[in-house]
């Protein structure tokens, strides 16, 4: 390995350079090794084994039995609950997203000013975001309580009869939507706020000179300029609402009459309550494909915008 004495000065220095480079290389691998091994074990290998399990019958106690695409065929063509869960999840997303976008954009426009005390409002609106989903669920369970919950108490004052928010199959999913919107608007408000700050001020100045109205400025400057932010919020919103689980588990248990069963809830239920791991893995993998498609669409959109 060592340089022989006959080597010139230049090759000596290149030897040291090579040595330094090799050293940096080894150090680099050493530094990233824990993360790489971890990510392999915790993410990549589980995806592969999840894919494998989805083609088997597996109850943890006995070895997995290969069944081919039987799980997928059953899910897609013969499983009413899965179909119901897909419908519930889609409906939930489609209700949450427009409400969330409208309200969070309005909030962002309202708090995008330097007035006194505005930081307090921003903080308040963001509080539900940093509260755990289980804590939020517990608080809202109490708010939704049919007899002594705050919401029915207030409605009672207005003469509106007690509403069975979570017990009525026609209403339970909407009640979860309402809670999700309350919890989520602060998050999107911050993202919209960053978007608003990025709009060049001269556009508004030019519009002022032309005598544009506030509404006109919103329609022709703010909204179009925020388009990428809105797109981002929609895709991220779909990704996160498709994975709704905590509130369903903690508040409704998927009921009443499966009216709030979501796809993620189904994964949990089949895997850890019925121990049908193979079928649960198949549900999870279908969910994964949807989310992967959404993520890739997101990346593509922003790549083409950058070019």
């Amino acid at each position: 390995m060592g340089p022989s004495a006959s080597h010139g000065v230049s090759s000596l220095s290149s030897y040291w350079k090579n040595r330094a480079r090799r050293h940096a290389m080894l150090t680099g691998y050493l530094f990233v090794a824990p993360v790489v091994v971890y990510v392999l074990v915790i993410h990549f290998i589980p995806i592969a084994s999840s894919l494998y399990l989805s083609f088997t019958n597996y109850n943890i106690l006995t070895a997995p039995k290969w069944v081919g695409v039987a799980n997928y065929v059953k899910l897609l063509f013969r499983d009413d609950l899965f179909r119901r869960a897909m419908r519930n999840t889609a409906q939930y997303s489609l209700e949450v997203l427009p409400l969330n976008i409208a309200i969070s954009l309005a909030l962002a426009l309202l708090v995008n000013r330097a007035s006194r005390g505005i930081v307090i409002f921003r903080t308040l609106f963001y509080l539900p975001v940093v509260t755990s989903i289980i804590a939020v669920s517990m608080i809202w369970l109490w708010l939704y309580e049919p007899r002594t919950g705050l919401i029915n108490l207030i409605l009672g004052k207005l003469g509106i009869g007690p509403v069975n928010w979570l017990g009525n199959p026609a209403l339970a999913l909407h009640s979860l939507v309402l809670m999700r919107v309350w919890r989520g608007v602060g998050w999107n408000m911050v993202i919209y706020l960053a978007g608003l700050q990025g709009i060049p001020q001269y556009l508004y100045e030019a519009a002022d000179i032309d005598g544009a109205s506030g509404l006109g400025k919103f329609r022709y400057i703010t909204w179009p300029m925020l388009k990428p932010v809105t797109y981002y919020i929609i895709v991220m919103g779909l990704i996160s609402t498709f994975q709704t689980f905590g509130e369903v588990y903690a508040m409704t248990g998927g009921g009443p009459l499966d009216s709030t069963a979501t796809v993620a809830f189904l994964v949990y239920q089949r895997a850890f309550q019925y121990f049908e791991m193979g079928e649960a893995a198949a549900v999870a993998f279908l969910l994964f494909l949807v989310i992967l498609a959404l993520s890739l669409a997101n990346i593509r959109y922003f790549q083409t915008r950058l070019e």
Binding site: I42, P46, S49, I239, Q243, Y268, L287
Partner: peptide
């Protein structure tokens, strides 16, 4: 991009 539900079962195992 990986939803936690995909890796949950193998991680449990």
């Amino acid at each position: 991009m990986i939803p936690v539900y995909v890796t949950l079962i193998p991680l449990f195992i």
